[in-house]
Design a protein around this nucleic acid. Structure first.
Length: 482
DNA sequence: TGGGGTTAT
DNA sequence: ATAACCC
């Protein structure tokens, strides 16, 4: 099928119809079951669908640091390097190095269990994330040097869109060099590379760039990690974990069905979380194939069209979500959990501590928070994950003080946060909190002009001329606030 | 379970 | 403001 002619949309409609057709004759069990030969047709359909128009096929890398917090701690204190090391937050070992893993320590194991399994385990406290956060952004910045299109996922994972870089490298190559290209790292399934297949060649160049990225991370930052190269984010992420520590894997399109079917449960599919997997299980869906073959109509009724269509595409290994550059953070927050906080004074003290750290961070960032939020967790025996929050604007005079620096901004902020607190907690009644969190969000450069707007080009400090210019004006000087 | 983050509704 | 997702 030529995508240019009938239009790609019709192919998709055909695929959907093929599925519904197959569903109509579904052989018992639950609605939507397909015969094995029909399944192959379906997989074939989806295989052909995604790369449609090979010029639009992407090369994505997922970079995943090995036991990140533990690595940072081992760099801070090299004596820890050859010992089993765990990073502790409260009563849990949140991550550990490979020495410790060999001895049976697992992520998010309680300190008690971990010590029982491994009495020699060395523990360091990792409740203050400052050094991890700093190292995390160094990694992202290093990757941004290869290509600015880097999307962060947590502190230790990044996606990079390599499509353009790969194209440029291929343009530079002579034909004799082209035939001599080799893959860097593993090929998923040990699938043979076809040097005449343009998709293979592009992914292979992607694997070379991935190797260069990992080498740069090690040489410049001393960090090791894994990488996965594939045609979309989902597959790149899944394949990055295939060979584990400090190795990389490329996925060729012919093996994508094998990769997704290597998952033992839909919950392992990135994008399908706790809630959705429970709802799917209630529908009798537990494997990737169950989800592939389930009636789209019924799934849409149950989960809503948006979630249904997205996760069913995921089940086929399809993911058209772009690598979205993360840029600077959208929010800053600090939280603390504890066994019990039951007085207003106690809460105020904790809030002051969180706020003090946050103000330092916000100050260093340079942008100003226009919204504050207080979140808390009340003790309750049964339910899990019951947090509530209240938020409000940061008063303009406080934003001004933040901008000017040096003025006391603690006092007015604590007052605001305590109002939010009393809005959630009736302080005249007994209460029992187990977590407090303060968040600054809605961050703006003091300068409110946005890229692409008239204001942007009329603002000397932002327009291109002033980057090179000797004078830099501030908005205030221009009386533009009005 | 901790101490973070994101986007969608 | 909450609910889902990610690490």
């Amino acid at each position: 099928v030529e995508p240019e002619e009938a239009g790609g949309g019709d192919e998709e409609a055909d695929a959907t119809r093929a599925m519904e057709r197959a569903e109509a004759g579904a052989p018992g069990g639950w609605p939507g079951a397909l015969e094995p030969d029909e399944l192959d047709d379906l997989a074939w359909f989806h295989d052909e669908l995604e790369p449609a128009g090979s010029s639009s096929c992407r090369v994505i890398v997922h970079v995943d640091l090995d036991c990140f917090y533990a690595q940072v701690e081992m760099i801070s204190n090299p004596e820890l390097k050859d010992k089993p090391l765990g990073v502790q937050q409260k009563y849990f070992v949140v991550t550990c190095n490979y020495e410790a893993r060999k001895l049976g320590v697992k992520k998010l194991m309680s300190v008690r269990d971990a010590k029982e399994k491994c009495p020699q385990l060395v523990l360091v406290n990792g409740e203050d994330l400052t050094r991890y956060r700093e190292m995390s952004y160094k990694v992202t910045e290093l990757l941004e040097e290869f290509n600015p299109v880097v999307e962060r996922l947590g502190f230790d994972e990044n996606f990079v869109d390599l499509t353009e870089m790969v194209e440029k490298r291929l343009e530079q190559l002579q034909s004799d060099e082209l035939s001599a290209l080799t893959v860097s790292g593993h090929v998923y399934n040990n699938q043979p590379v076809n040097p005449r297949d343009t998709l293979h060649v592009r992914l292979l160049v992607g694997s070379q760039i991935a190797a260069e990225m990992r080498e740069a991370m090690y040489q410049q930052l001393g960090l090791t990690g894994c990488a996965g190269v594939a045609s979309n984010k989902l597959l790149a992420k899944l394949v990055s974990g295939v060979f584990k520590p400090n190795q990389q894997t490329v996925l060729l399109p012919e093996s994508s069905q094998d990769l997704i079917h290597s998952l033992n449960h839909i919950k392992e599919m990135p994008g399908i979380g706790y809630k959705t997997s429970k709802r799917l299980e209630a529908l009798g869906i537990s494997s990737v194939r169950d989800l592939q073959t389930f009636s789209s109509k019924i799934l849409e009724k149950e989960l809503g069209i948006s979630v249904a269509q997205r996760i069913q595409k995921l089940s086929f290994g399809e993911d058209d979500s772009p690598v979205t550059p993360s840029g600077p953070p959208q929010s800053f927050s600090e939280e603390d959990s504890f066994k019990k906080c039951s007085s207003e004074v106690e809460a105020k003290t904790k809030i002051e501590e969180l706020l003090a750290s946050l103000l330092n961070r916000v100050c260093q960032d340079g942008r100003k928070p226009y919204t504050v939020r207080l979140t808390l967790r009340q003790y309750s025996s049964g339910k899990q994950c019951n947090r509530e929050s209240r938020q409000c604007p940061v008063p303009p005079h406080v934003i001004q003080k933040l901008a000017a620096g040096n003025y006391d901004v603690m006092t007015p902020m604590v007052d605001i946060l305590m109002k939010l607190f009393r809005n959630m907690v009736n302080v005249k009644m007994p209460f029992h909190l187990t977590l407090l969190s303060v968040c600054f969000c809605n961050l703006k450069s003091l300068n409110t002009a946005k890229k692409g707007t008239i204001d942007y080009y009329l603002t000397p400090s932002l327009s291109t001329t002033s980057h090179a210019g000797k004078r830099s004006f501030k908005m205030k000087d221009c009386h533009m606030e009005d």
